[in-house]
């Protein structure tokens, strides 16, 4: 059998092999250009998952493997096994660094849930240690989100979440504003993101800057997507700040006792809240 066809086989292999290698190179170049397959497989991963799982990951079942590690991390959370949970979260984001929910929810677990649990830990009678522990987990959450941004620099959500964490958990308003601003610069970011900038400024007692921000929004475009801006909230905040800052009447957008007619302002959106909610989670 082989004696009569080996040369044909050899010829085909010799001709096709270089074509194959070059074509694969071309495919990989295209993939890199469109941001595909950036989550490769590295030795770091090898240290974190068992060999069986590594084979599954390599065989194209990365998603399922990640799902189940995530499930395991979740059950750790329910049992309050924080130090078992953290490595699993690390593995999950190592395997699928582009699925934003893993970063977002993982950081939220650390900075909110775990840190709170540490602060009320009855097993630790010394308050200083409890606070140290709380601080540690908030910092871990922050680190996690910063890593998330390094991996996904093109998603406004992560900038927003980091700003949120800095504002809520670290009271670092200056940095929070910085990240909210970055998030708001994305075209696809929803309107509440840009409102978060003056909100954070006010919390950080940078009232002047806050008012400037609100004015920028107020004087900005009102057509297109901006129809949905909560104009009454903007107005309220501006009024408050103008009073607090004792802005001369002549410079106020809303002089004393004058009210803009709500009906003439672009679109009244009564019931909505200005702050984003942490929905979806229990």
């Amino acid at each position: 059998m082989w004696s009569r066809c080996w040369w044909k086989v050899l010829l085909v292999v010799l001709i096709f092999s270089p074509v194959k290698v070059l074509w694969e190179g071309d495919i990989h170049k295209l993939a890199r250009a469109s941001g595909l397959f950036s989550a490769g497989f590295n030795m770091d991963m090898r240290g974190k998952i068992t060999q069986d799982l590594a084979v599954a990951v390599l065989g194209g079942f990365r998603g399922i493997v990640t799902d189940f590690i995530w499930l395991a991390a979740h059950s750790n959370w329910e049992k309050r096994e924080w130090f078992r949970m953290k490595p699993k979260l690390d593995t999950v984001v190592l395997l699928q660094p582009h699925f934003l929910d893993y970063w977002d929810i993982g950081a939220w677990h650390m900075a909110w849930n775990i840190s709170y649990d540490a602060s009320v830990n009855t097993a630790e009678p010394r308050e200083a240690f409890r606070l140290k522990e709380q601080r540690y987990w908030i910092d871990e959450g922050e680190k996690f989100l910063r890593e998330a941004i390094a991996n996904n620099p093109d998603s406004w959500q992560l900038y927003f979440k980091l700003g949120w964490l800095l504002e809520e958990k670290k009271q670092d308003y200056k940095q929070a504003v910085e990240y909210f601003t970055k998030a708001a610069e994305f075209k696809e970011a929803p309107l509440y993101v840009r409102r978060q900038v003056p909100h954070a400024l006010r919390k950080g007692r940078m009232n002047k800057e806050a008012l400037a921000q609100w004015r920028k929004i107020w004087n900005g475009p009102r057509d297109g997507e901006y129809v949905h801006e909560l104009w009454d909230v903007v107005e309220q905040e501006m009024r408050k700040l103008e009073v607090e800052l004792k802005v001369p009447y002549s410079e106020r957008a809303f002089p004393k006792n004058t009210y803009t007619n709500v009906l003439t302002s672009p679109v009244p959106e009564p019931a909505a809240k200005s702050k984003p909610k942490k929905t979806d989670k229990k």
Binding site: G60, G63, Q96, H98
Partner: peptide, 8 residues
């Protein structure tokens, strides 16, 4: 699979 799920 990975990339599609990640919204790429």
């Amino acid at each position: 699979v990975d990339d599609v799920v990640a919204g790429k």
